[in-house]
């Protein structure tokens, strides 16, 4: 009796939390199809906000920037993060002992801190003109850690002795990497790439600091639009972004389920 009562409470609480998380998102999606300029009441179904979106030069430009940055940044982050993940797993000795901390710190760091410090670094230390390059570097910086974690978790889940076995059976170090390590961590590398991609394409705070004046990404564009009003067009672009992000995360979690669990 008591147990069912308790589990009832648990269910109610869980439901409330999920509602809190997802109802706002659902509202955005819903109103992106609403045939009214106001986000007030449901008038009727339309896709004209989406059509409008694809006529909006500024929006398309921002989307192109976002995609370009996301592609290049996640490719670089995947390369570097994979190497870091392997190093953390295989040689946890000497100076490399603090590697995990260094690589993972950006993951846990408040974004605003990272944004401010990168801005200072680019302006004061490097004297870099803010723009595509600075955004790219910033995105690589905060993505490496995620890739490294995913790759490392995958490696940690493997039987250590297979690497010894490969050597024992005559494989030189690069042969072991090519024939054993790489094929086994490939799903994790792909998942890391997808994670980096979603992180990059969604990022607002850090990008806001390091973007400068000339270059706009999709989240920055959305922000500048809602400063005026939350138009149905904003709902539409948010819906698209959401769909892209969710499908990439779903794909990533399919590729490396254990890795994404360990992140939480």
């Amino acid at each position: 009796m008591r147990r069912t009562k308790r589990s009832l409470w648990l269910w109610a609480a869980a439901l409330a939390v999920y509602a809190f998380l997802y109802v706002p998102l659902a509202v955005v999606v819903l109103f992106s199809f609403n045939d009214s300029l106001l986000n007030a009441e449901w008038i009727g179904f339309t896709t004209r906000w989406y059509a409008l979106l694809f006529d909006d030069e500024a929006m398309l430009g921002a989307a192109a920037n976002s995609l370009l940055i996301a592609l290049i940044a996640s490719a670089l982050a995947t390369l570097l993060g994979t190497l870091a993940g392997i190093a953390m797993q295989r040689w946890p000795v000497g100076v490399l002992r603090c590697l995990p901390l260094l690589v993972l710190a950006p993951v846990a760091m408040p974004e605003i801190l990272l944004g401010v410090s990168l801005l200072l670094f680019f302006r004061q230390v490097l004297d870099l003109t803010l723009g595509l390059i600075s955004i790219l570097i910033a995105h690589v910086t905060f993505s490496i850690g995620f890739v490294a974690i995913i790759v490392r978790v995958r490696l940690a889940g493997l039987d250590e002795s297979i690497f010894d076995a490969a050597r024992d059976l005559g494989a030189r170090p690069w042969q072991t990497f090519r024939h054993i390590t790489l094929p086994l961590i490939r799903p994790a590398i792909l998942a890391g790439f997808l994670m980096s991609f979603t992180l990059s394409i969604d990022d607002f705070v850090i990008t806001f600091f390091v973007a400068g004046v000339g270059v706009t990404t999709l989240p920055l564009q959305i922000y500048s639009m809602i400063k005026v009003a939350v138009t149905p067009e904003v709902n539409a672009v948010s819906t698209l972004l959401m769909a892209l992000t969710l499908s990439l995360i779903a794909l990533a979690s399919k590729l490396a389920p254990d890795a994404l669990k360990a992140r939480a």
Binding site: I162, A165, R167, D168, R172, L184
Partner: peptide, 20 residues
């Protein structure tokens, strides 16, 4: 002489088969 250069092979307790 490195392990990969020795004409000595091992059967590990866990078999250490390559899973892929």
């Amino acid at each position: 002489v490195l392990p990969e250069q020795r004409p000595v092979h091992t059967v590990f307790q866990s078999y250490a088969l390559f899973p892929h």
